[in-house]
Amino acid sequence: MVAAAGLLAGLLQTARGPFAVAQAWLAMRGRLPRELMAFLADAHEHRGVLRQVGTVYQFRHVELQRRLANR
């Protein structure tokens, strides 16, 4: 029990921890693809929908971004 609490506390001290928790929660609810990074890489490399600026993905088309935001 103490080890689990220590692991959870350590996980939440990094940026990766809350990201992983939020990603898992949204994937379970069907709001995100289960393999988010693979999905983003495919949209960038093969489909040309996203562009990568540094470590950030951006939509290439503002109209697509607006349409998806209004869903």
Rank of each mutant, 00 (worst) to 15 (best):
A27N: 08
R71H: 01
M37V: 14
N70C: 08
L11V: 07
Q58C: 06
Q65I: 02
L7T: 13
A3M: 12
Q23H: 14
L40K: 03
V56T: 11
Q23I: 04
L36T: 12
G6W: 12
L64V: 11
H46C: 04
F59A: 02
L36P: 08
E45T: 09
A3N: 15
A27H: 09
Y57Q: 05
N70M: 10
H61R: 14
R51F: 03
M1H: 13
Q65F: 00
R34H: 09
R51N: 05
P33V: 00
G6V: 11
G54Y: 00
V56K: 12
P33E: 01
V53C: 05
L12A: 11
M28D: 15
A22P: 13
R16Q: 13
A20M: 13
E63L: 01
G10Y: 04
E63W: 04
A5M: 12
P18I: 10
D42K: 01
A3V: 10
A24N: 03
Q65D: 03
L8G: 14
A43N: 01
A43T: 02
R31S: 10
G54D: 00
L11P: 01
L8F: 15
V53W: 07
G30K: 10
V2L: 14
A27T: 07
L64A: 00
G54T: 00
Q23R: 09
R47G: 05
L12H: 11
A43Y: 02
R34M: 11
V2A: 12
L64G: 05
E35V: 04
D42M: 02
P18L: 07
T55E: 10
F19H: 12
M37K: 11
A24L: 03
Q52T: 02
A9L: 13
R29E: 08
G48A: 02
L64E: 05
M37S: 15
R60D: 02
L68N: 01
A5V: 15
A15W: 15
L50A: 07
V2D: 15
